[in-house]
């Protein structure tokens, strides 16, 4: 067996609370193999983004990693010195944020930012980098890419910005890509194109991907494995098929049950989580479909 591109063991992330540290990520472990997409779905505020930030050591005080082992593409992330972090983030792992504006400089044109990003990793002339930037924009589905290079971020719609950010993240050829609600703002057709593009890049570069989304349809189509987070913990894990076709944990069931579908009844409230979901989840053990199979075989 080859080593996983991402290994996380017993990760605990805390923030200070009134009565001592609060474990916002509470002892979670997972792996992602190169070329695979692991989806994280789940409760808003359950620790998905903080888990993702842990892989890059991007937390800002007072949020801190309290415990756990993190290895990304062979690097023990927690043992990296501060001065090694920039190179690690630039060359090994990239992240597409929930908010595209946070990754872009509002006063520089898209072209300038892409050219800079390309030239950090490849020693090419500005002219060559500019041509590459044009190709990258075309690749992520932006119309008239050559003209768009001269646009400022505020001139683009939310969906276009997301695509620019994806192009920037790919410019360093990362081994591991984190996408935190990267396609949330895209309509279904644009989203499908962006996901196809990402799929191609993943295969071509054998990247491991951590894919956070609230869109269960996208998760089911795009991810190889899915884990469901609730209240800082992973409550259910399996292949996308297992988790969505045979959900076992009460939280997962409640989540799938609250989904808006085209055949749902109108003029009555959309079902939501049962009120006692916290209690139900405490009673139900975390469910790992791989382990279930082993049990069932016995």
């Amino acid at each position: 067996m080859t080593e996983s591109a991402v290994t996380v063991e017993n990760l605990v992330v805390t923030v200070p609370g009134a009565t001592g540290p609060v474990r916002v990520v509470d002892d979670i472990s997972f792996e992602i193999a190169a070329g695979n997409v692991l989806g994280i779905v789940g409760e808003s505020g359950s620790g998905k983004s903080l888990t993702a930030l842990s892989l890059m050591r991007l937390h800002r005080s007072p949020v801190r990693i309290d415990n756990g082992f993190i290895r990304v593409a062979g690097t023990d992330v927690r043992s990296l010195a501060e001065r090694e972090l920039d190179a690690f983030r630039g060359n090994t792992i990239a992240m597409i944020y929930q908010n595209p504006m946070s990754a872009l400089n509002p006063v520089l044109t898209i072209g300038n930012q892409l050219v800079e990003a390309i030239r950090i990793h490849n020693k090419v002339s500005r002219r060559v980098a500019r041509n590459q930037a044009t190709d990258m924009l075309a690749e992520v589905g932006i119309d008239r890419p050559a003209d768009r290079l001269d646009s400022y971020p505020f001139e683009l719609s939310g969906g276009m910005l997301q695509r620019v950010v994806i192009a920037m993240a790919m410019s360093c050829n990362p081994r591991v890509l984190i996408a935190d609600e990267a396609t949330t703002a895209l309509d279904v057709t644009t989203q499908a194109r962006v996901l196809d593009l990402l799929r191609g890049l993943i295969e071509q570069h054998d990247m491991a991907v951590l894919f956070i989304t609230h869109d269960l349809a996208v998760a089911s189509e795009f991810c190889d494995d899915i884990q469901v987070m609730y209240s800082g913990r992973i409550v259910e894990r399996g292949t996308a098929r297992e988790v969505f076709e045979d959900p076992r944990h009460p939280y997962t069931l409640g989540l799938l049950g609250s989904l808006c579908t085209l055949d749902m009844e109108l003029d009555r409230p959309i079902p939501t989580m049962p009120r006692d979901i916290a209690e139900l989840s405490r009673l139900a053990p975390a469910i790992d479909h791989a382990a279930l199979e082993v049990q069932e075989l016995r």
């Binding site: 779905v41 789940g42 409760e43 808003s44 929930q98 609600e181 949330t184 703002a185 609230h214 269960l216 409640g254 989540l255 609250s258 989904l259 808006c260 409230p269 959309i270 079902p271 939501t272 989580m273």
Partner: peptide, 14 residues
């Protein structure tokens, strides 16, 4: 509501 999990989203839409 696109940045909300589907259950919280349902609650807000309701």
């Amino acid at each position: 509501v696109s940045a909300l999990d589907v259950s919280v989203r349902a609650q807000i839409l309701n």
